[in-house]
């Protein structure tokens, strides 16, 4: 009995040290980025055997919190870091630096039987704040609107709130656990509306992607249009980021360089997102050196 316990402890200790020596790069955060970064890490690990990268989700807020608590090497974030988070990081001796790895056109999705195919930013704001509650108010059928959004640890939740709502979400909004859950819900709900990363919307069936205009005078743009998203003409385009502590080094740096390489950016496009434009390439170079 004692012997068995001794062996167990030995195995446990051994596995701990084995992991520690493995130089595993931990990546954590945004659920919008998880599939993309997962795919990139798979290709990377296949290309360079012996490298070890672990990607987990949890939401941008969770990833940034983990970076601050030094529990991850890279934090995926679909939003920018908040001033308060930078303060917290500095208290812990962490200096968050941002690298942009892809561009997303945040897509507003509705059920395939919904006749509303375009909305202005103002209308989307009113819908998610709960001020518009029926599709007839935005030119659709007489049908109650059901809101599907993300939970507060999601960067997408914050992004839409900062850029579009400029206020609180309706307390009747159902708070879903990830992009795919929103798609599943909108698929079956004729009055449903939700928001997901374009990489998820593109792949989904039985939903419509709404065209969005900045205001009532500007043209309606689709998040599927590469030029509009990259140029920012599509109002909900946003950079997808990774935060690291200080200038990235060693294994983490190598992986980030791979993400930004043509091979990495090819995966970005394969996953339905958009490659980074020149302005961000320059920004990234200034961070990585």
């Amino acid at each position: 009995m004692k012997k068995a316990a001794g062996i167990m402890i030995a195995i446990f200790l051994f596995s701990c040290t084995a992991f520690a020596e493995n130089n595993m790069v931990q990546i954590k955060g945004s659920d919008t980025l998880i599939n993309l970064v997962q795919k990139m890490s798979e290709v990377y690990m296949e290309k360079y055997p012996g490298k070890n990268i672990s990607v987990t989700g949890g939401g941008s807020g969770t990833g940034i919190a983990a970076l601050i608590n030094k529990k991850t090497d890279i934090a995926n974030a679909s939003r920018l870091i908040k001033a308060k988070e930078i303060q917290n990081a500095e208290k812990e001796g962490v200096t968050p630096k941002r690298v942009v790895i892809a561009i997303d056109g945040l897509s507003v999705i509705v059920n395939k039987d919904n006749s509303v195919l375009q909305l202005t930013v103002d209308q989307i704001g009113k819908i998610f704040r709960g001020e518009i509650t029926n599709w007839s108010e935005v030119g659709g059928d007489d049908q109650a609107i059901t809101l599907y959004g993300r939970q507060s640890n999601s960067g997408t939740f914050e992004f839409l709130r900062e850029v579009v709502l400029k206020g609180d979400y309706s307390s009747n909004m159902r708070q879903m656990n990830g992009n795919s859950q929103i798609i599943e819900a909108v698929k079956t709900d004729i009055g449903g509306i939700g928001y997901v990363g374009v990489g998820y919307a593109k792949e989904a069936e039985d939903i419509n992607i709404v065209k969005v205009a900045r205001n009532s005078k500007s043209p309606f743009c689709s998040p599927l249009n590469v030029e509009d998203v990259k140029s920012g003409k599509y109002p909900l385009s946003r950079p997808l980021n990774q935060y690291v502590n200080g200038t990235p080094a060693n294994e983490a740096k190598e992986f980030i360089l791979f993400e930004l390489s043509p091979a990495g950016q090819k995966i970005v496009e394969e996953q339905g997102f958009f490659a980074i434009p020149d302005e961000y390439i320059e920004h990234n170079e200034s961070i990585i050196g």
């Binding site: 949890g58 939401g59 807020g61 969770t62 940034i64 919190a65 608590n69 308060k84 988070e85 917290n88 939970q151 507060s152 640890n153 009747n172 159902r174 708070q175």
Partner: peptide
Amino acid sequence: DSVRTLTSSIAIELGEVAY
């Protein structure tokens, strides 16, 4: 109606909350 239990609130929010 949609409901949000005590457990789900803790699970959703504890991951990202500032200590």
